[in-house]
Design a protein around this nucleic acid. Structure first.
Length: 102
DNA sequence: TTCTTGACGCGCA
DNA sequence: ATGCGCGCCAAGA
């Protein structure tokens, strides 16, 4: 029997983020039990298949901002998904006080 | 195997 | 507030 890998744990954490809430890369890594693997979280989301049911858009950086450059398609897409879930922004920053998961 | 890269985070000037 | 450097870790060249 194999043990769960870091990747699997991280996937699980991300899938557990409820609608209308967000978590930072660092927070996801920390909850998965690997506090120094925030970069790994980002890499996993990057290699994730497009059509997967994983709520990748609910993961933002520790500043409460989307990690894609402003104006890019991915940035707009993520912002749209969050807005449609009721996440509120203050310019480009998410109101973490209201939407941070845990 | 070494060097670079990256959807990150934190401390410090 | 803003930029810079460094630490972390896995994947790719």
């Amino acid at each position: 029997m194999q043990q769960a890998t870091k990747e699997e744990l991280i996937y699980t954490i991300i899938c557990a983020i409820p609608e209308g809430k967000v978590a930072s890369y660092g927070q996801v890594a920390k909850l998965a039990g690997y506090p120094n693997n925030s970069r790994l979280v980002g890499r996993l989301l990057k290699v994730m298949p497009e059509g997967s049911n994983i709520p990748w858009h609910r993961v933002v950086n520790s500043q409460g901002k989307i990690s894609f450059p402003e104006g890019s398609n991915k940035h707009l897409e993520q912002r749209q998904k969050l807005l449609s879930e009721g996440v509120t922004f203050n310019k480009t920053k998410i109101n973490m006080r209201l939407h941070q998961w845990d």
